[in-house]
Design a protein around this nucleic acid. Structure first.
Lengths: 205, 205
DNA sequence: CCTCAATATGACAACCCTGTCACATTTAGT
DNA sequence: ACTAAATGTGACAGGGTTGTCATATTGAGG
């Protein structure tokens, strides 16, 4: 937690510091990010930084917290759920949301990428708790198996992993190429393959 | 290139240094790896390191070269090709090979993982040239489309990316869990889904 | 106006790192 | 045995990092 001193600051100064953190943690891994750089960008003296944050970890957690808040606000009312949606439909909707997020705040997304790239103990612990999404998707798949949409011999966990693995790659690609329509089409195509397979009917032995 | 002095060393001493490099670069990213640590592990003085290698890059390239040599030797005669193989069969064989490699030399594989994690200019350049495999697979897919095994409306590049993305995730998983049979089964299951799809026939509209 | 707490500040210690270089030692050839 | 080249060596310079702390400044209440 940042100190009360930090929260007593002008909002403009707080933003100045926040922005400097975003810039640094988007450009570098947690481990590689430099407080020296942050204070230089934010234009505050070294001592002040430590008046506001206990240390680098404190600063990083603050940053993640703020980003999570913004994300919450952005997506609060956007989630249009349709009970007829299959897991694939929901997946596509989620993907679209992710793309909106990336386009709106590319730097925040890059912070996530860099977070994934780090393998310090601190970050590994932080990432551990992030597997709720996986369970949610596995449950959707099971639901669709009960509805008779997905074959029962498909392993829900395996399919979940496939979807997440592909999602990761696709978002990464999007991030670098920024071809919104192309990416949506490509993902749709991938889901078609996962739905119906890639081989001709004769080969569905 | 290491200096001639290095190659004039006893093989045992060279191995000692090589092993220290493996240990360090398996545990840390290229950027994070420390020459200090290497010389400590190899038990050689600082000056000697620079008598053998121009710098860290030189040392790393030497390491990669040695590993590539070993890999070549290991796989020289193992590649049993069958003209009736589909791209999926070849893919599975490749996966098996990768698993053999990981089981034989887990540290070498980890060096690869750590290499992927680094994003220094030097490593990025190094990784650029590594996309030959992708093209090869795309060509196999097109071949199977001509053979009538894979549907023509499937985009070869998209399918290639799917396969590689999944491969990556699967190998990563294997690396951490080391469940050989489980992993093989899981990959087979994934390929079944990619072949035949995951939905019931009624839903193949 | 004066005092005391809150806040600002940059020099500093302590710890990393890499690459160099003058000097010591070993080895090979005459 | 003597010389010259090859090799071994660790102190050092110059750069980075984080977190601390004594001191300066500011602001608010009596």
């Amino acid at each position: 937690m940042p100190t009360s001193t930090f929260y007593n600051l002008d909002e403009s100064k707080r933003k100045q510091i926040f922005d400097a953190c975003v810039e640094e943690f988007a450009a570098h891994t947690y481990s590689e990010a430099s407080i020296n750089q942050i204070i230089k960008t934010a234009n505050i003296p070294r001592g002040s930084f430590y008046q506001y944050f206990a240390d680098k970890e404190d600063c990083y957690l603050y940053l993640l917290g703020e980003i999570a808040k913004e994300k919450m606000i952005l997506f609060r009312d956007i989630v249009a759920k349709d009970d007829d949606d299959t897991v694939f439909d929901e997946y596509e909707k989620m993907f679209d949301q992710a793309i909106v997020w990336i386009e709106k705040k590319p730097q925040y997304y890059q912070i996530g990428i860099k977070m994934d790239m780090d393998n310090s103990e601190f970050i590994r612990k932080l990432l551990k708790g992030n597997q709720a999404g996986l369970d949610y998707f596995a449950s959707l798949i099971k639901r669709d198996q009960d509805r008779g949409i997905i074959r029962k011999d498909v392993d829900a966990d395996v399919l979940t992993e496939m979807l997440f693995s592909i999602n990761r790659t696709a978002l990464m690609n999007f991030f670098y190429k920024r071809d919104f329509e192309g990416m949506k089409k490509q993902l749709h195509h991938i889901l078609e393959i996962i739905r119906k397979g890639s081989t001709t009917e004769e080969n569905h032995v």
